[in-house]
Design a binder for these strands. Structure first.
Lengths: 340, 340
DNA sequence: CTGTTAGCGCATTCAC
DNA sequence: GTGAATGCGCTAACAG
């Protein structure tokens, strides 16, 4: 674990023939230093290849410019895109971030968070599809010592900030769009174990009920919905279901499921969108890589990440906790069409 | 940037009525402590919610348990999967990692690396598709102060470790496989600006030459090859080229291009693999999400990442630098078939 | 077994 | 403008 010997501020001071305080001043540029000595110091710095030790600095300023990010994993491009957004915002403010994967395991999530606290991060962003699995107590104590931002979390803990999507509204928009196209027999595909699916199902039920088209057997739960295997499990389930139920449209809780639906249709010899329409949710890059490209609701994951980061930094600087709700917009592409 | 006040080792010592040294001992478990006092200390720790300050600890042990990872970005699932592998290995050894995206910009890459050094990371993993853009001097000086591992880098700097794939051999295997299927008119699709493509093209040329089938116009360079837009640019280029050249197979430098080829074929009304075979490279998850699933060469990106991390940790512990070459294996799926 | 003490590298008073 | 001295939280000798 040893790091090779590096020049310290003392070495620089010695070489430049000044005190460490002066070196510190030119490095931080927060106090006046005579032009002449400033240059001598700078010379010494570059000749010694001196890099200030951030740990030491942060130790005695009791500040930290690194934040922690906890995600379930990266296999799913959803999280990767969110992280991209975080990275972007974070860097603009001179912060760095430690990334931890919790593998959808509450235990590991808590461990990761504790490790982050020990590392003295000045804030933490958590993306956890099912935050209900961890006691609120844990988070309450946590937020008492370090600012916390949840992305797409569904509980309410005081002091914790949230960035999320209005998935209920988004679902309604999707459904209205499908209805406007003449679809009445709309299959609903969801996964298990994420609050997000519950919200969407509720929106679906409500909407279909209002339009007198709710049928229990049109609601399909395919289990785990966040991995690459989701595509195949959606496909398999749908391959049997579609011929039996003959829906004119399929409304999926995410794009992975939509791709599965698309593949099922291909195998069944159904033409999309001529014979059947498919609607996704999220707008992960996959949705525009398949052929035909999937119509979906854009969650703008990059925004999700960058908003969370900005919010966290605001909190770190003493800002109030708050919640940001992003609106999802419909991205009309090639998998939806008028119902025959 | 302020972090909320936390209990320090002094608070714990006071509360437990012992010295800080004793607290340190029970925390680290490296020296014997009487069972009785140990418990008193532990009680104090949990009642104060004490978490040892890693920065302080690492400052005076001159060790660091965080490493730095620099990638071009995460949009491409390739990097996401590699990072997954890194995360896994790194955590097993109790390390954490700071992630930085360099956005394919050498300037940003150097900045990111400097920030990492300042943070006192004990090692750095760099994934950079075209490391030639940064002067070797930079890396030479870098590796003199902190262990360095390159993933899929193509230069040779002494002291730097490498983990890479035998892409030359992999390409040969792919080509041989296609040849074995009876294909002689094999289009080669590559991108710009990455050493990887050069290696593969060389393998292609050599192989085709040996088999008397090399045609200059069968080599297609579609430009940027690492973003999601790659799929469309490959598709567009191929849509015009395929009818003119009438290849029986397309060998792509990565799966993104292969998906583009697949989409082009769909638009041209060509059936894959009946009319034309398509071969990818990398085995990113996308390759098995599309329909039909793409035959490809597995780079095993997870392995790439975890090997790099293990190697880095070995180096950190004083091990020699070395290079690891992973073999790529053929994953036969649904886009390749016998040539008519 | 346990307490005391001296730094780790740096920023920051307070004098000069 | 600049230097000397103090302490951030912790570990590692060194004594007892």
């Amino acid at each position: 674990m040893d790091v090779k010997k590096q020049a310290t501020i003392v070495d620089v001071a010695k070489k430049a023939g000044v005190s460490v305080a002066t070196v510190s001043r030119v490095v931080n540029g927060n106090y006046p230093v005579k032009q002449d000595t400033k240059e001598r110091v700078k010379e010494a710095i570059s000749s010694l290849n001196y890099v200030p030790n951030v740990q030491a600095r942060e130790l005695n300023t009791r500040k930290s410019s690194t934040i922690g990010v906890v995600v379930p994993g990266l296999h799913n491009m959803f999280f990767a895109e969110v992280i991209d957004g975080i990275e972007d915002a974070v860097r603009q403010d001179g912060f760095s971030f430690l990334l931890n994967c919790a593998k959808n395991d509450p235990m590991q999530e808590m461990n990761a968070i504790n490790a982050l606290v020990a590392r003295n991060v000045s804030g933490i962003i958590v993306i956890s599809p099912n935050t209900k699995n961890i006691s609120e107590r844990f988070y309450e104590e946590l937020v008492a010592r370090v600012p916390l931002v949840f992305i797409n979390g569904y509980h309410r803990i005081k002091g914790v900030s949230y960035v999320g999507n209005d998935e209920k509204l988004g679902s309604q928009i999707a459904l209205e769009y499908l209805f406007g196209l003449g679809h009445k027999d709309i299959l609903f595909v969801r996964g298990a174990n994420s609050d997000s699916y519950d919200i969407k199902e509720e929106a679906y039920r409500q909407f279909m009920e209002e339009h007198g088209s709710l049928r229990e057997d049109y609601i399909l739960n395919i289990g785990e919905g966040n991995g690459v295997e989701t595509v195949d499990s959606a496909m398999n389930a749908l391959q049997g279901l579609i011929p039996r139920l003959k829906p004119t449209a399929i409304c999926c809780c995410n794009d992975l499921m939509a791709v599965g639906a698309l593949n099922a249709c291909k195998r069944l010899g159904l033409s999309v969108p001529k014979d059947i329409s498919i609607m996704g949710y999220d707008n992960i890059s996959l949705s525009r890589l398949v052929e035909p490209k999937i119509t979906t609701m854009d969650q703008n994951m990059f925004q999700l990440g960058s908003n969370a980061a900005k919010l966290l930094i605001e909190n770190i600087h003493g800002g109030q906790s708050k919640r940001i709700m992003l609106d999802n917009v419909l991205i009309e592409r090639e998998t939806t069409g008028i119902s025959m």
